[in-house]
Design a protein around this nucleic acid. Structure first.
Lengths: 198, 198
DNA sequence: CTAGTTTTAGTATGGACATTCTAGAATGGA
DNA sequence: TCCATTCTAGAATGTCCATACTAAAACTAG
């Protein structure tokens, strides 16, 4: 019933995702979205209702493809360190930052769609940090987890400013090294116990 | 020669500063600027040329009133800790974040006026962190300074998202405590030497 | 006093933008 | 093979925006 959709939805969302990461929401026009997605505004409106609907779909896509598998799935300090250090490697070194961080700054205080998704993303990041710290260091080190959240968000700000030099890579690595050292010395049993699980 | 300016320039810049902090550059219309500054668009254009000229003037004002005295003048870890912890206290707890951080995210990669000022602000913040760490901890601890920069920028992202809870305050304080402890134990002479200076 | 200059408020303008409309093309069930 | 439905491209629309313009008001040098 009805004509088949001609465009590849994943490709459209991927293109729009790059464009929203680069320009933000307000800074990206529908005309630019036509170029980024290679489909006409008519099709965009037919498929997603309006610009905000596309933004929502892009955010869902971003959670599904980037946040959930990378951060939502992180269980250990090593996993989180990889997430952070990957900001220095392709494809994450493109300088466009994270849709979540960018939206948190663009849409203040959880207002509207952008703020809602930003909040959801920060929930996931916070939860991952707490999970990893508890797994590797035991309870009572929640402040270390929150500092990881702050470090990571700070990295994304500097990324966006084109200022995330290799000196920052060393600084972040050193922090994870320190946490792991502290984990081993203070709670030597915990990592062993983790290793046994599953 | 000519009519006197009726408005108080500092008040206009202060009002525009709040509005730009709240809404960003693109997200703030000239009509909203009329309300925020209490002067008409005609006067704004006469005084500042265009919207970008006003933005530049606001940024200069922000450096002069906020960045330079608070961060540019910071010499020690204590000074920097105060800057960070003040994000939890009025007037800095208004949730609007820092013009520098917001501009760094809005204007990617130092592009244009916003990026230029963001870069200048980040220069000052980085320099202050390095100065404080060197003063209190001696050379060789530059990574600690960069982590302070990241923590601070991360705090500003969470502020903007309305998520900078008191738990983060403790986490940040604990980090500064740790740095001071490390400073004392590793370089006991340095703080004494500092105290003598001047 | 007044001529010249700057400031002010308000209106006008031209462009950009999100969105809607239109007409035709593709699809699949009856 | 139609026919209802969905999709697509592009043109049309109305709104909002930054900025330019206008005329009056206020000020100062001479």
């Amino acid at each position: 019933m009805g004509r088949k959709r001609e465009f590849d939805e994943e490709a459209v969302l991927a293109g729009a995702m790059m464009a929203f990461r680069r320009h933000g929401y307000a800074g990206l026009s529908v005309i630019e979205l036509e170029a980024a997605t290679q489909i006409s505004a008519g099709s965009l409106y037919n498929a997603y209702g309006d610009k905000e609907g596309l933004y929502r779909a892009v955010f869902d896509f971003y959670f599904r493809k980037v946040i959930d598998p990378r951060i939502g799935a992180a269980q250990t300090l090593d996993d989180l360190e990889k997430v952070a250090i990957d900001l220095f490697n392709p494809p994450f070194s493109d300088g466009l930052g994270c849709l979540v961080t960018n939206a948190a700054v663009e849409f203040r205080n959880s207002a509207g769609t952008g703020g809602h998704f930003a909040g959801r993303g920060l929930d996931i990041i916070e939860a991952a940090a707490l999970r990893a710290v508890r797994a590797d260091m035991g309870d009572g080190n929640e402040p270390a987890a929150l500092r990881i959240v702050l470090l990571y968000q700070g990295m994304l700000v500097l990324t966006r400013a084109g200022r995330l030099s290799n000196a920052y890579k060393d600084a972040v690595r050193a922090e994870f090294d320190r946490l792991r050292r502290q984990a081993k010395s203070t709670f030597p049993a915990i990592r062993e116990q983790n290793a046994k699980g599953d």
